[in-house]
């Protein structure tokens, strides 16, 4: 009886296991780096994780809806090149706001293109978003053939700021959590989970499958634009392939966050936890003084072990029951 209740709890609150994993990796990190909880260090860490956090929440929505978006990284690159082209060190506040609004619109358009192809033309998400990723990286290269650009000093300082003595990253996490709580309470979220677990059943019960599916990619496009803004503020310059690597990391973060890739379940906050786990693991490897050439391997093995852990537990349980 109790085990059933426990199992139900874990399947509903999918991010609990991720949270436990997070506590473990943070503890390990603390043992290597005693000033981990100093405000300055927290601020630094969250600042580097922020772009991927925002991106992963968008990816999580697509994955929960039963798809995957392999174009998000190149979309971040495209947004980055547009921002450094439109914003110069002399830009006024109004111009900057306009540029931010424009790139958000472009992110939404890019997402709508993906969503239209997947939902209305019924194309497979993996290859479709792979194809559009070429379009986005082509545009990025067109906008900014050579790395460069610089931002107003105030803008870069803002990204490093700690309003009310709290890291900016904490506010962003707060907004992301609030966003998910609000979204989760709507009928839209029920549709989202329904099409993710079975689009046939959802269609049969009158869920507007196609339009909901389009919106998942629109969310992901918008979040890619926001992640692009964050990344640009973080680096202060532009490069046509700056965000390309973030695509696969966003997928790994989603999975580490306890969101099943088959869709229909999970909690977008889990993706944020997944990003922090990834960042903390990287920290540990740095502070544990792992030899330079072994860092990639150790990082990959730890991530693989984290991904495999639920499967190993399930396998052992099956063998015991037999």
């Amino acid at each position: 009886m109790n085990t059933i209740r426990l199992q139900r709890f874990f399947s509903r609150q999918s991010y609990v296991i991720s949270l436990i994993l997070l506590i473990v990796v943070v503890a390990v990190n603390y043992s290597f780096q005693n000033n981990l909880f100093e405000l300055r260090i927290i601020n630094n860490n969250l600042r580097t994780m922020m772009p991927l956090m925002i991106l992963a929440v968008g990816q999580a929505i697509v994955v929960i809806g039963g798809g995957v978006d392999l174009s998000v990284g190149t979309m971040v690159s495209m947004i980055n090149t547009l921002l450094v082209t439109w914003i110069t060190p002399e830009s006024t506040g109004g111009e900057i706001a306009l540029a931010f609004a424009l790139v958000c619109g472009i992110g939404i358009l890019g997402g709508a293109l993906n969503g239209f192809a997947v939902a209305f033309l019924r194309l497979q998400p993996i290859v479709t978003t792979y194809a559009t990723s070429f379009i986005f990286s082509g545009i990025a290269l067109l906008v900014l053939p050579r790395p460069g650009g610089s931002l107003p000093r105030d803008l870069v300082t803002f990204y490093r700021s700690t309003p009310l003595d709290l890291p900016l990253g904490l506010y962003v996490i707060g907004v992301l959590i609030l966003f998910w709580i609000v979204l989760r309470s709507t009928r839209y979220a029920q549709y989202l989970f329904a099409i993710g677990s079975s689009s046939d059943a959802a269609y049969a019960t009158g869920v507007p499958v196609r339009s909901v599916r389009v919106t998942t990619y629109v969310w992901s496009g918008l979040f890619a634009a926001l992640a692009g803004i964050a990344l640009t503020l973080s680096t202060g310059s532009g490069q046509a392939n700056i965000g390309d690597d973030m695509t696969l990391n966003s997928v790994v973060a989603v999975v580490l966050g306890g969101i099943a890739l088959r869709g229909g379940g999970g909690n977008a906050i889990g993706a944020v936890i997944g990003v922090i786990i990834l960042g903390v693991i990287r920290n540990i490897i740095f502070f544990a003084e792992v030899p330079t050439w072994s860092q990639t391997l150790v990082n990959a093995l730890v991530i693989l072990a984290a991904l495999a852990a639920p499967g190993v537990i399930r396998l052992i349980r099956r063998l015991i029951q037999r």
């Binding site: 890739l261 391997l297 150790v298 990082n299 990959a300 093995l301 991530i303 991904l307 499967g311």
Partner: peptide, 22 residues
């Protein structure tokens, strides 16, 4: 271990690249 193929092979990519570096 029933790890989704996309995730498993993605994870292995990192391991293989890491092994190459080592």
């Amino acid at each position: 271990l029933r790890i989704p193929p996309l995730v498993m092979t993605l994870g292995m990519t990192g391991v293989v690249q890491g092994t190459i570096l080592v």
